[in-house]
Design a binder for these strands. Structure first.
Lengths: 405, 405
DNA sequence: GGATTAAGTCCACAATCTGCACATAATCCT
DNA sequence: AGGATTATGTGCAGATTGTGGACTTAATCC
């Protein structure tokens, strides 16, 4: 219920530019005539707007199309990747990353710097990141791109631009964007899971309604409904990792008991398998520690591929627990489909079946078809890419404002 | 990502009318000068817009205000309850209801007709409801009101205007609005829980961020974020009743096991107390049936007031189970506060404490303050009132379109 | 090669908001 | 009291933007 401002002539024009640009983005190359049809504006107006967009280098004409019968062929316009681009950044536990993405969703620059950021001082890490960002921007500018915005993914909940609590970095209440200090470049900050969901939206399978499950060291999720992110009241929605799976299960670092993270977090997967009552415990040996080879997710995948029994049990249990948490999530959030990312994408062959089975068994009566559980189409870069995508959303939502048209 | 239409002159005006009207609604009586300040429009424009709103009977001038220092006093305008009103309707298991609400949120007409709609034929019930609606509209018209829209609350999930499944009515896939057949009056249909949440928003404690928990025969919830309802992808969000509380608990009618409804639904409260592992079962006698006096919620309240042990245990357990489900809901939905309505409002004194205790124990590390658990300020009419409120939202969102300004 | 069809542009016109001037109505100050 | 001051609300010319129909352009059809 934020008090909204009135519409003036310039905002009318700004809005129409955004509408036209949005239609070009959504429906591929389009002629001016088709745009007039789609937007309800007249051909005259569309012509003028498109002309401005061409001047700004946001769109290009790609030659005549004679898609149909007789009559003068139209000239299709589509997004241009030559001028406008945005910067995505990420701080995570063991690396820093930056990328530059153009309007056509092509990744133009990608830089990753391994680092051990556990328990680090924010100032030092953010100085490193600023340097990395500077390199990425320089690369992009050499390619003739203009960076119009940036966003930063961090491994923890963000409220009002403040990183509340990143347990694995040991950071609390850090005004990240301010300390990063990108000169002249607005930089939004958001949760890794939220931005990874936007990554899936922009660079993934092309759906616009899904719940992205981000299994990194913690487990988070980002819900996309009709192409936009649901953030909840304080921006803290989607904490799938702490959904209750077993009410009197083992303690979780969040203060609760039997959260999803206890059963399907990285610690649980990498050896510290916690039996869910009467299930895994019944499989002899499953509750024991896994062989040493599973000290990393790579190791675990090798064990699973080799058919190691304890590893299979661990993955199966994680899948079941995930299915239980997703059942609650489906009832509460009503996602279109479910996309497993991060660790769960790597473990997909072993995790998907148990999770789907739990989900469909429990949802059978309530929905004719339970949401499909799919694997994320993009890999570990989801969050950085999504950060660039978020910055790009700003351009598309208000090209006039961002580009000073 | 619905393809959006361009802005033309008339839509600019329509939007500005809505902006001005919205500001008057949100910030009480306001002078034209204050409106100009708030909306960013000029005094001239505001004057013209307000003049149209006065002509339409949507707002009234309420005399000069000399709120401050020197200078000519302004004339404040505020919403008028004299002309515009909307109709709220509800079909529920044991009654039909209709109400008429004016722009100032005053309930002008209220009609309830007890009925036993279990396993009934939709045609018959909806014909009764049409009659009731007709009476309410006639009452309103006698009072000089003009009904500009309607909405209908039904006890089950609604998708694309179709009532999917109302287990207690025995209805499946009913195009309710069509069968109701209100001539010339657009009628939206939505879930009882969603509309009760809007009821709380419009007629309750004045907050605009909360999760309304609707404990009727089933348990549902409606999330309001910044004054608007979150519906999920298919309009099925908020099914709190089937959030998993105990993964291997007793079977629920939804096909799942250990859902919240099993522990805190009306059946559970009225005698069929199902022990949650190792908790209630430990209280001797709690798992047994309650005395016969508890065949209704009224009876249960009497027992609780009399200090009946089994009843107290049942309410306490329901509260705990509710707390567990709400924990998951808070992590996923991030509501501002939690408002208990329906049965849980009546049982508030016995249910709130255990629910809050579970919630704060489990959220302690993740949030500085867990969401407050409050009692709904409005009673059993929440859903009908909310239905009228939804119809009113349409008027406020587009006064020009609805009132043909 | 002329008729037909459709895309894109040009130009006069219409809708809406802006900015400033001005009338109005109160308080403040002498 | 009466004039100065201050702020509200309205009238009028002007600016911005979209509209609608006529016109030009470029293709296919016959």
């Amino acid at each position: 219920m934020a008090s909204s401002r009135g519409v003036r002539h310039d905002s009318m024009r700004a809005r129409n530019l955004a509408v036209v640009l949005g239609e070009i983005r959504a429906a591929g190359p389009l002629t001016r005539a088709a745009l007039a049809e789609l937007t309800g504006l007249t051909k005259t107006t569309v012509s003028k707007l498109v002309s401005d967009l061409l001047d700004a280098g946001v769109v290009v004409e790609n030659g005549a199309v004679r898609d149909g019968e007789r009559g003068r062929p139209g000239v299709a316009v589509s997004l241009s990747g030559h001028r406008i681009a945005t910067l995505g950044l990420e701080v995570n536990v063991d690396y820093l990353a930056a990328c530059v993405v153009d309007l056509t969703r092509t990744v133009r620059v990608r830089r990753v710097r391994p680092a051990d950021n556990r328990g680090s001082r924010p100032e030092a890490i953010l100085a490193d990141l600023r340097e990395l960002a500077g390199q990425a921007v320089a690369d992009a500018e050499r390619a003739g791109l203009r960076i119009t915005g940036a966003a930063l993914a961090v491994p923890g909940p963000v409220q009002d631009g403040l990183l509340r609590n990143a347990p694995h970095l040991g950071w609390r209440d850090i005004g990240v964007a301010g300390q990063l200090g990108l000169h002249d470049l607005a930089c939004e900050v958001d949760n890794e899971a939220n931005l990874a969901a936007l990554g899936e939206l922009w660079f993934g399978s092309g759906q616009s309604d899904f719940l992205y499950v981000s299994g990194e060291i913690g487990i988070g999720a980002g819900l996309v409904v009709d192409g936009s992110l649901f953030r909840g009241t304080y921006g803290l929605a989607g904490e799938l990792g702490h959904v209750v799976v077993v009410p009197d299960g083992p303690a979780c670092r969040c203060g609760g008991r039997g959260c999803l993270e206890v059963y399907a977090g990285q610690d649980a997967l990498l050896g510290a398998v916690v039996p869910m009552r009467g299930r895994v415990a019944a499989l002899p040996g499953a509750a024991a520690a896994l062989p040493a080879a599973s000290a990393s997710i790579d190791g675990l995948v090798s064990l699973l591929e080799a058919g190691d029994r304890a590893a299979l049990a661990a993955a199966g249990q994680a899948g079941e627990a995930l299915g239980l948490a997703l059942t609650s999530a489906v009832h509460l959030l009503d996602p279109g489909t479910i996309v497993l990312g991060g660790v769960f994408a790597r473990l997909f062959p072993w995790v998907e079946r148990p999770a789907s089975d739990v989900l469909s068994a429990r949802l059978r009566q309530m929905r004719r078809t339970p949401p499909r559980v799919a694997m994320s189409a993009i890999g570990a870069d989801a969050a950085v890419l999504g950060a660039a995508g978020l910055a790009m959303q700003r351009v598309l939502a208000d090209p006039a404002g961002v580009l000073a048209l």
